[in-house]
Amino acid sequence: MTIADIIDWSLALMPVLLMAALFAWLDVFKLMSVREMAGLLLLGGATALAAWPVSGAVLDQLPMGFSFYSRMVAPWTEEMLKLMAVILLFAGNRIGFKLDAVISGFAIGAGFSVVENIFYLTRYPELAAPVWMVRGLGTAIMHGTTAAIMAAVAHELGERSARRAGAAFRLNPLWFVPGYLTASLIHLAFNYFPDRPMLVMMVTLVLAPFCLLALLRFGESEAQNWLAEECTIHEMMLAAWKSGRFPDDTSGRRIAALARRVSGQEAERIRAYCMLKTELVLAAERELQDGDRHIAPEQRQRFRDQFAQLEAMRQSMSRTGFAALRPLLPFSRNDEWELSELRELIGRD
């Protein structure tokens, strides 16, 4: 590989990867590990591979093609493929905060653009460095931004349900439609001026970081407020459990009614399970508020023991008893995401 080739590949691939790393570094909650970021990049790359059977046959030899497919069809198909990856993250409860959604979405778009640009680099090695600069600083950043917007809009629309529903949570496809339409229209506008690639690149470099940083700042503020509110609620719940009472809310009253219908031993198991899970959720929220993502070895072992104890409690309940308890539990989908973050944190190092 010549020096010119190294320059071309660097221009085409590095800017969007560096921007993804920058956004992960700016996350005050430090939610994204290197392994998770790599996984998201690979997921985005897989969506580009899925697009290849269609788009690979009609690639243009310019930063933004002149063909009808490149200008009018590709934005809709490519954004739909990236949306499938975003939906996969939401379905697996891998996104909690809005800033988490923005960073995850951008990483998916970055992975898509890296694989797409590798296609171009290997197919058209004779193209000059300015072409790869436009693709690296323009097209690639656009792909990351549109995926981030899709994820952020879906999070905004589904946030209330995720914070309220627990076992009853259902993913609503309509949450993803506005973000998909917005991303596709942005992509369409980007491809609409193939004869002015430098101008489009400059506009992208100005608007995309501004939009993404605004979303990150809003997401950070929203997450801090949400965590403060949730901590207060779970502190009150834990105090009720520890005092021997049931929390004075709809869930607490329903669990109390269930406890009265089962044996005393089973009722005690239900109380102990709810109390310990509330304690772990509260601990997860406090760790997220702390932000340094570091737990002392002795505390890490204590959390591991508590998670093992929680599972043992669940196993000790009868199958019908836990099936009756599960829909009554006060823990939302976001609470479950917080627990998964704590599990990942104590599993690191």
Rank of each mutant, 00 (worst) to 15 (best):
T2R: 00
L11R: 00
A12H: 01
V28L: 02
R35A: 05
A38F: 00
L40E: 01
W52H: 07
P63D: 13
S67E: 03
Y69A: 07
P75R: 00
P75Q: 01
W76R: 08
E79M: 08
A85R: 00
I87G: 02
I87E: 05
A91G: 07
D100N: 14
N117W: 04
F119T: 01
E126N: 10
A128R: 11
R135M: 10
G138K: 12
A140C: 11
H143P: 14
T145D: 08
M150R: 15
M150K: 15
E156P: 05
E156D: 14
A162R: 14
R163F: 11
V177I: 13
P178S: 04
T182I: 15
L188G: 10
A189V: 14
N191R: 06
P194C: 07
L199I: 15
V203T: 15
F210A: 12
L212E: 02
G219Q: 02
E220D: 15
S221I: 13
Q224W: 09
N225F: 13
A228G: 13
E230S: 14
T232D: 14
L238H: 08
K242F: 08
K242I: 10
D248Y: 10
S251K: 03
G252W: 04
L258V: 01
R261A: 15
E268F: 12
L276I: 04
T278K: 02
E279A: 14
E285P: 01
E287L: 13
Q289E: 04
D290Q: 10
H294D: 00
D305T: 10
Q306Y: 08
A308M: 08
Q309L: 12
Q309V: 13
R314I: 13
M317D: 02
G321T: 06
R326M: 07
L328S: 00
L329E: 02
N334I: 06
L339H: 03
L342H: 07
